[in-house]
Design a protein around this nucleic acid. Structure first.
Lengths: 208, 208
DNA sequence: GTCTATAATTTGATAGAC
DNA sequence: GTCTATCAAATTATAGAC
């Protein structure tokens, strides 16, 4: 018999609820009452376990940003070819973000709110994004004459942009293109192929 | 003698201040006191001129989203070639967002907060995004055999992504790549060339 | 540990003098 | 029109019973 959500201890239920509410509404928009309702307990217990809103938020933010960033490093610091890395990157992020579509919005949102607070913590931790090896790999391929001469930073930006932006802009995109949830998911599934293809076309040497 | 900010009537100073504060912090994070301070007056005047926070916010949001969206339509509904449209799009948005870097974050943020409120208003107004002509133009070029066969929606997504995302993610991007403001602006300037180039490479027929 | 009730704080909004 | 002082409402946080 698998445990139901209701059977989890309150401490965990609260954390799960906090994740959900903070991810959707951000620090400023979230209400302690919403979290209590979502967890099926009352506000007092929130403070009993996690002292105050700030502490609870910090816990959620740190845990979620760790989900968001280390993925980048594992892929970018491997010894695979660029093409393989493009595919892995899009594949993994689309899969993660299908389950957790608010994640990039949440992370960017709070970094924007307080660039020198959490961002600094993340950037000094073990799990900070380390794109250097990836950028150097591109430069090496250029020197070897295997790919076109382009600023590696634009390559990185393009990959991040095309993968993450659609999720950040989902409500707008869906409305503009007149899509439902199913269609949006289908479109994101397709991006596992189209994005790496665009990336490769942008670095592959042109036929003379 | 050019008018200084301080010389503007209070009503306008308030609106300017509200734009600044709402754009940076969003509806939930903004404080009426912040706006009053920014405008150099007291809270009571805010209510005297604009009744309440909601009304003031709606005014700012409508005015800012009109800056954000109509640009798309003017470019996408013209009779230019796809290549010209790519260039114009990136050129105009990079120029606008250099002056107003919080704009896309602000718009997407509030649409995310309340997808059926403001979003609905925008989507039914004269200035709603109308990508249809652009999508049809792509389909026509495909039929004519001028470009590769690709889903037009991915083309549109790629263009929006690569142009807007770097601004949304600026604090993170700058930190990751170790850039200051000047370097970031320089990089965005370069995107006026690199992004259209990537777009063209992604649709141009491959040489056999 | 968990609850109800309540205090404390923050923030939006108004009253009234000038 | 603009200000100070104040109120009202929303929200976070705590006290104390069980």
């Amino acid at each position: 018999m698998v445990k139901k959500k209701k059977d989890l201890p309150a401490e965990e239920r609260i954390l799960d609820a906090a994740k959900k509410v903070f991810l959707e509404k951000g620090m400023a928009g979230a209400r302690m009452q919403d979290i209590a309702n979502e967890a099926g307990i009352n506000k007092a217990l929130l403070h009993y376990y996690y002292r105050d809103k700030e502490k609870l938020f910090e816990l959620v933010f740190m845990s979620e940003s760790q989900k968001f960033f280390p993925k980048i490093n594992r892929i970018f610091e491997s010894d695979e070819t660029l093409e393989k890395k493009f595919h892995e990157f899009v594949e993994e992020y689309v899969n993660e973000l299908r389950l957790n579509p608010y994640l990039p919005w949440f992370v960017l949102n709070e970094i924007n709110r307080d660039p020198d607070g959490f961002l600094l913590k993340i950037m000094t931790g073990e799990n900070r994004p380390r794109p250097m090896k990836f950028l150097q790999q591109i430069e090496k391929e250029i020197k070897l004459g295997n790919i076109r001469k382009v600023d590696p930073r634009h390559i990185l930006l393009n990959l991040l942009s095309m993968t993450l932006f659609p999720f950040i802009a989902q409500p707008m995109v869906s409305r503009i293109l007149g899509m439902g949830n199913k269609e949006f998911e289908q479109l994101m599934e397709e991006r596992k192929k189209t994005v790496p293809a665009v990336m490769m076309d942008s670095i592959r040497k042109k036929v003379q």
